[in-house]
Amino acid sequence: MNITATHLKKSFTINKKIKILFSDLSFSVTFDHVLALLGQSGGGKTTLLRILAGLEIPKHGSVMVDGESISFDPHSLYYYRQKIGVVFQQQNLFPHLTALENVMLPLTVVQRMKHSIAKKKAEEMLEQLQLTAHQHQKPHQLSGGQGQRVAIARALITRPQFLLFDEPTSSLDPEMKSEVLELIAQLRTFRIPMVLVTHEIEFARKCADQVLFLAEGKIIDQGSTKHFFTHPKTEELRRFLESTRAFNHS
């Protein structure tokens, strides 16, 4: 999979002050399975992911996914979003629906699939992710990790072109974190490319093929995971890796 961004510009207005996130962001990255977006908080990782998810519209610039340009008019974005899967930081399941109904919703409503077929597909998906025991539970009855796994099932059920994860474990306890991270690692078997914003450096190291390192709205470094962690090109990246390592070990 290839993602190419050219001259991306994005700014936000917070309390009547304009905050520029990217002034001119360009990159091109090719990967087989997993691309990890790393960097300090506020560096623009999540915004970049949200642009890829069709949830934010850049002020200028273009993004191409596998040679196809994302059209940022609302109507095209609506169809574009149907082709991809997103897993958010908080699990974001619909609280009035059971786990099974949550997973079925994209099939029955967006793809207009017959209820019985959608149910069968959703049950199969939940079984694959070892969630059958929880399929009739509502989100508040699930643990954080289980909820996030159901959210992953909901994103996967439509067989998306690619999957986006926005810090999927940052609101979880350590034990639940490993449960979700293990699942994400297993998703390789689905052969769906994934873009992952994460603070779990060790996980990115084990799981990702390519890494993009963002700071202050710029790509500081990018490369294959192996090279990226062993030979940090910039001083900034070296400091970042050291600080996270120290943090992870403490």
Partner: peptide
């Protein structure tokens, strides 16, 4: 707001 966002992300229209 996250509920709106989630619905948008799975491809629901405003009415849906």
């Amino acid at each position: 707001k996250t509920q709106w966002e989630s619905a948008k992300a799975i491809g629901l229209t405003t009415f849906q």
